[in-house]
């Protein structure tokens, strides 16, 4: 795999430096058969340092969680060597097993077999609270079990 250019696949760019391995795990890229390149700490004019993930080939991966973990990241779908589509990240309505609930009174603290489910609290997000289509912000999520908030 030539990591400079891929013929078809996905490039996730502008990842916060150091966040790529986390994303690699959360997107389940370890389970893919495709070649995956993780480029860490490369120079970026905009960000100083950034990470990039390039995934080669055709595959099915749910990118929803990216909008929560790294809303500043950009996603390009590559076809025949050119960028066919730039995907806009949006806040997922629901995130499962991405963050843990910190409320000591929550049932998930004693029943660890339960999925950790959080839902976007402002749905639809209010226009004036700054995170609608505003890259770099995360929105407010609440644990479905106990309603504890997670920023």
């Amino acid at each position: 795999m030539n990591i400079d250019s891929i013929n078809s696949g996905i490039v996730i760019d502008h990842i916060q430096a150091g966040n790529s391995m986390n994303i690699y795990g959360l997107l389940g890229l370890d389970k893919l058969q495709s070649s995956v390149a993780i480029i860490k700490n490369c120079k970026s004019r905009k960000m100083g340092r950034k990470d990039i993930i390039k995934i080669d080939g055709e595959f099915d991966v749910n990118l929803d969680v990216l909008g929560y973990v790294d809303p500043g990241a950009t996603v390009s779908i590559i076809k025949d060597g050119v960028t066919a589509q730039k995907k806009k990240l949006s806040l997922p309505r629901r995130i499962v097993n991405v963050v843990r609930c910190n409320n000591p009174r929550c049932i998930t603290t004693t029943e660890t077999a339960l999925d950790q489910v959080f839902v976007l609290a402002d749905d639809p997000p209010r226009q004036n609270c700054g995170f609608v289509g505003d890259p770099g912000t995360r929105g407010l999520y609440r644990c479905v079990y106990c309603d504890a908030a997670k920023g």
Binding site: R105, I107, T109, E111, L114, C143
Partner: peptide
């Protein structure tokens, strides 16, 4: 009834 929050939902 349960002392943990969210137990009935679970």
């Amino acid at each position: 009834r349960h002392p943990k929050e969210g137990a009935p939902l679970a």
